[in-house]
Amino acid sequence: MSISILKYVFFDLLRSRFIITYGIMLALISLGVAYFSNDEMKTSLTLLNIILFIIPLVCLIFGSIHFYDSGEFIEFLLTQPVSRNTVFRAEYLGLTLALSVAAIAGLIPAIILNGITVSALFLTIISVAMTFIFTGLAFLSSTINTEKVRGIGLSIVLWLFLAIIFDLIIVLLIILFRDYPLENLIIIFTSLNPIDLGRILLLLKTDASAMMGFTGASFKLFFGSTTGIVVSSLAMFLWILIPYFLAIRIFRKKNF
């Protein structure tokens, strides 16, 4: 019964001009990158940078816009015998699945040109994880703010913070406190940011891992170990679950 709303949201978005444009844009980028860089590792690394830039931004902004635009229909659905959880879950999953399909479709040209490799698989997983995380954050900022402009504003601020400001803080910390043993603190800090986690996990699957080991052996040791991968995956999951459940809590108490 929730599946009918989910199906509708998913297919409606899949047909939408925005999602199609998004998928095609990603596909063109990955085609270009895979075509012009002769080796697979480099393709993955370049794509990783683009993915970690674009996916969070698109999911945050489009997620917020979509949530506000669906507001009246969500209100209408809630006059029917369905629970708020059901409607919210359907909206969230419908959007994340549609965005994930677009992201995976966007990666397909690179996979066709380079074959199915470990890093391509990782890239796909990271793309989907980023989609789930940042759509959740978009829904959170949209449920916190009833005003559309403020909600989208908060989404942009979240993106700026996680994509840029957070890393700037880490770099400054490293520079300012370089005389102290910071490795463990940095590991904890980077685990707090899903964009950093995604980047580091993929880096360790490529040639760049040697560079990581060259100057920061303990990072490679941690993030390359089973514990590190378990902890990182767990952190990613929390990044999906926490914003989702916070948003649903607010959504359940929302007045329409």
């Binding site: 009246e72 229909f73 209408f76 006059t79 629970s83």
Partner: peptide
């Protein structure tokens, strides 16, 4: 609850359907 809404038919003043 939400089950009780099986009993209700509602017509809003205006809806912007998708």
């Amino acid at each position: 609850g939400f089950e009780y809404r099986h009993k209700i038919g509602y017509m809003p003043q205006a809806v912007n359907y998708p």
